[in-house]
Nucleic acid binder design. Sequence first.
RNA 1: GCGCUUGUAGCUCAGCUGGAUAGAGCAACGGACUACGAAUCCGUAGGUCGGGAGUUCGAAUCUCUCCAAGCGCGCCA
Length: 560
Amino acid sequence: MKGRVHEVIVAALAECHAEGLLTSGAYPSFAVERPAHAEHGDFATNLAMQLAKPERKAPRAIADVLVGKLAARTDIIARVEVAGPGFINFFITPAAWQQTLLEIEQAGDGYGKSSIGNGAKVQVEFVSANPTGPLHIGHGRGAATGDTICRLLAATGWDVTREFYYNDAGQQIANLALSVQARCLGIEADDPRWPADGYQGDYIRDVARSYLAGETVEAGDQHVIATGDPHDLDAIRRFAVAYLRREQDLDLTAFDVGFDVYYLESSLYADGRVDDTVRRIKESGYTYEQDGALWLRTTEFGDDKDRVMQKSDGGYTYFVPDVAYHLAKWERGFSRVINEQGADHHSTITRVRAGLQALGVGIPQGWPEYVLHQMVTVMRGGEEVKISKRAGTYVTLRDLIDEVGRDATRFFFVMRKPDAQLVFDIDLAKEQSNDNPVYYVQYAHARICSIFDMAAQKGIVPDFAACPLHRLDGEEEATVIRTLASFPEVVEGSAQAFEPHRIVYYLLELAGQFHSYYNRNRVVTEDLDQTTARLFLLKCIATTLKNALGLLGVSAPERM
RNA sequence: GCGCUUGUAGCUCAGCUGGAUAGAGCAACGGACUACGAAUCCGUAGGUCGGGAGUUCGAAUCUCUCCAAGCGCGCCA
């Protein structure tokens, strides 16, 4: 509907220019928005204000001219008026609003989708947890946020590739292997022989036990059989990485989060991409040697100090494989890449981009794009759950899914915009009451389904093909229809801004309007026409609720 | 000290990329089930949008500057 109004405005402006009513010939950018107050109509535009400068006339005078043309579009416009400093307010005819329900019904599962992405390729990298331990609550937020962004982009016409980057090389993995080996040998964390930066979590014991038992682990295309030899560090490393990767995969599967590509850091070394990247950066002239190390002039690209690429011991710092990895993304043809990460790693952004710029291969400055999510704190029993890796008291994603369920976990993780810190209240998420927003929304869907069941039991078979839409003439019905009609706009905005929480707020609003409507209006009555029309409205609400929940990876139950 | 993010009702948070009179849910108080699910609804009350200055027809939104909180500032990842 908004798009239709936009078209009508452009057409009117063109007419005014053609007939000399306006003289500048200007087509400024202008907004069509939904006014906060109902007295201001269904839509409003600031076009006249935007034209004031080029036309060198008062906004209200320009608005009067435009209104003369707009008023002729009686098929959708009931009334237009000039208000305030020069707003043009549109009042849409009830019939035009009611017609939008037909579009919803026809689109069905596809309602809310659009093609603004034009099928262009976009890659979203998210989670990318190190295979050194189980996924914790921060990874959970990343998984829910990243997955929802993928769903939003797919729904708006992008060709999405979901990617998980495995840091399966480097010092952390060496520490992992040493930790598992220590457990295999019965060395405790307080033993002087315990490795310096060893991982102390209980899961390390599980890995060691499994390894000694000679178990087999399958993860992705890996198929690793434990040798059970506690002195074969290389075998332990391969087994431990596969074991933890399998655990992470199981968690993500339980969370309904999937990936198209698992990219292994070790492959960047194996195929020479890391060395090649270093060589190409050196050739760029942005490097220098100092104190026995190789430095990159990242300050040339906005960093506050230069960074070491190759340490004096010959090893590369962590951002070098990161640059190599992103160069590979670019060469794979992703002109658009989005990285979803925790904000605690935000300092890598400047370095990775600097490395890519230094390569001089035509990568745009703002590439790749980043979505950073802030910290998550967990509340239980009104108190913050303190996180201590050493004591092993951190909350894993698995714990959350087991305790509060997948739907509530996903919903809560995307309830806030990524930029804001998130307080995850476990008690609230578990609660099956009106305080819990997940149940509030799901209940709306289940309630509608139950009304359809009840109507069927009464032998009512609504003929939607001949639905008397004009019977939906109440104020509350108009309100709900307007909300339904805005869904595609909400999806577009949410996708464009990488802000999944907008879908959550939309759901709460729509569910609220339905509950309110339901409490005041009886749907199934003796009046068959009215019953048919209202059931049709409810069907459209249920469809929209289900589609919106689907974007969040949350189910729309028919019964609760 | 520098960088990023945040600061809106007692609490938790929205505010549609600069629009008109700043909204919702909790909590508080008062109401609504002999008819479709009360996991619901209706009403009342609650504000110097952290402080200050600037940009313009117009600022919670953009700029600057203070204040406060979180995160990050390694030849760790």
